[in-house]
Amino acid sequence: MRAVIAEDSVLLRIGLVKVLEMGGFQIAAEVGDGEALLAAVEEHRPELALVDVRMPPGFTDEGVRAAMVIRRRWPRTAVVLLSQYVEERYAADLLATNTSGVGYLLKQRVADVGEFVEAVQRVADGGTALDPQVVAQLLLRRDSDPLDRLTPRERDVLGLMAEGRSNAGIAEALTVSESAVAKHINNIFAKLDLPVIDTDHRRVLAVLRFFGASQA
């Protein structure tokens, strides 16, 4: 799979190239700002764009805006945003239209190379990867009554689901059996009045819609 990297820190860009190459990606282009990123995506049509949020010239949300353009114009390119801090508002923008092929992770997650590569591959395959901190912010924003009805364990499961993990991934993270996870998920969906869906991806979509991420 081919990838384009947009990151203005040269030092970190070198690290990102190595990590993605280790994960089996072929680097089509490395750029340092949003406009160059759009040009590179248009030229190479990669399967993945790995994008820093704060880039020249404004150093605010250039990466988010470029990512939204990519998702609208080249929907087959999955986008993973990286940032020093994650912001629920940017996640809401990013997930507003479509939650497939999107990731939003803290930069420090790249250091856990194995997990990071896994998350990136999941996004490139059309999945979702949200940083636990984004999920925590989304949970916090949706603090209305239905969430109070969940048990702490069910809230954990909901958070992991929103990060984009599969049943197996959730089971591993919580060290419980997959059938226990499935039971929790059924309870959550019942309590939140969400339709029961089998595929992981559409389930994430339902959860995120519940969080209100897609209303922004």
């Binding site: 970190l12 420090q108 250091a111």
Partner: peptide, 20 residues
Amino acid sequence: HDGTQQRLVSLAVNLGLAMA
């Protein structure tokens, strides 16, 4: 943000790569 934080992340990434 532009200096120290990027350096630290890069350091952690390289150490992660070394382990992997």
